[in-house]
Design a protein around this nucleic acid. Structure first.
Lengths: 200, 200
DNA sequence: TATACTTCCTAACGCTCGTTAGCAAAAAAA
DNA sequence: TTTTTTTGCTAACGAGCGTTAGGAAGTATA
């Protein structure tokens, strides 16, 4: 049962299909033979295009990491803007990456553990850097009195947690557009972070 | 390399060790031979105590589901209490289950997909019921003016998302006790939900 | 035309998987 | 003591795994 195959490079098709299957069944439970069948191929044929199964996972995980960093950098480009604004833009950028390819996002969030060393450690370092960036933004907001939270570490963790649950329930054909989702999420999360009843 | 084995029934030991490995490597990537080695056994010996690999996963997933429902029921037992109080107690109960056994919780949250039918569908129905219960509580709070949120569905999703990220970073030997964590989480989440500046 | 590249095939490699059968020793119960 | 239960072993089963080698078409380039 091959799915419809648009005129994309074979390698990109493989990545795309594999990502969907990794998301649905998990990396370890997805066999190269199943992946090949889904593409209308034999298993061996895959290796004319890729080097290994893990190579696909590697590309997905590190590719998305790049996207997240790029989004955050753009959102916080003008450091003179109010922290709440930068944070809102960072949230929206994060949601945009998550919704643009929710399958890849789910793989990024859950399947990285199947990377072998040293890729696994590298990946975790990247993820940590990203988390720290969010935390630092919140801390700066707290220092300037724009944000309030009992604990910046907590705030950053719960914030990212709320966002990262999105791929679990987001459907591209749902009622809300990604931008609307991003806006609502930012609104709800910030209304818990922003100092109450003060004009920003 | 057998771990220290307290005087617990062999079956419970197997469940416990398997849960830790399922959490660390994922269900599909954990082999019965590795599990046996971790317990100081040969692979075949496991089957004197269990029927199958999936049976372990089934017990973990459905056992924890029971715990979550019991906690929620207890938290909302006195329906006359303010909704905010009930919600806070439900959050604390949820966190208590998550922290009591964070390995089992992580398996519950991420490895259920490896249940085969019909268990998988049953599990998802349970999970959905739980989510609906939270949502209903929030909706009642909104109807009574105790809570405010742009969207009850969103609120329930982000709330549970924030909580369910806990097993990813919680360490039993950390600085904060489970109760302190529960309290802080509830505080931060409710301060985003509670109508601002009104005494409850 | 000849040459190279892309794409896919068949067949097989060594290995690991979950699980079972049959047996044996130790521990508990009678 | 005898009997039963618990616990564990060895050896093997059929199946599936990721991957490779070597070849053969089709397509683009020269």
């Amino acid at each position: 049962m091959p799915t419809v195959a648009p005129q994309r490079s074979r390698k990109a098709q493989i990545d795309r299909t594999a990502t969907a299957m990794f998301r649905a069944r998990g990396f370890a439970a997805t066999s190269m033979r199943e992946l090949a069948t889904e593409l209308g191929l034999e298993a061996g044929s895959l290796y004319s295009h890729i080097k290994s199964k893990e190579e696909i996972l590697h590309r997905v995980c590190f590719g998305l990491a790049e996207d997240f960093f790029a989004g955050f950098a753009a959102a916080t480009a003008q450091g003179s803007a109010p922290i709440a604004t930068q944070l809102r833009q960072a949230i929206e950028a994060h949601v945009r990456v998550l919704t643009r390819d929710s399958a890849a996002s789910a793989v990024f969030l859950h399947e990285w553990r199947h990377l072998s060393e040293p890729a696994r450690t590298e990946f975790l370092a990247l993820r940590d850097r990203y988390e720290v960036a969010f935390r630092a933004l919140i801390q700066r907001g707290m220092a300037q009195g724009e944000l309030h939270a009992p604990d910046a570490v907590f705030a950053a963790l719960t914030l990212l947690a709320s966002l990262n649950w999105l791929p679990a329930w987001y459907r591209p054909d749902g009622k809300l557009t990604p931008d609307e989702i991003a806006h609502r999420l930012a609104e709800q999360l910030l209304s818990g972070l922003r100092r109450t009843e003060e004009p920003v």
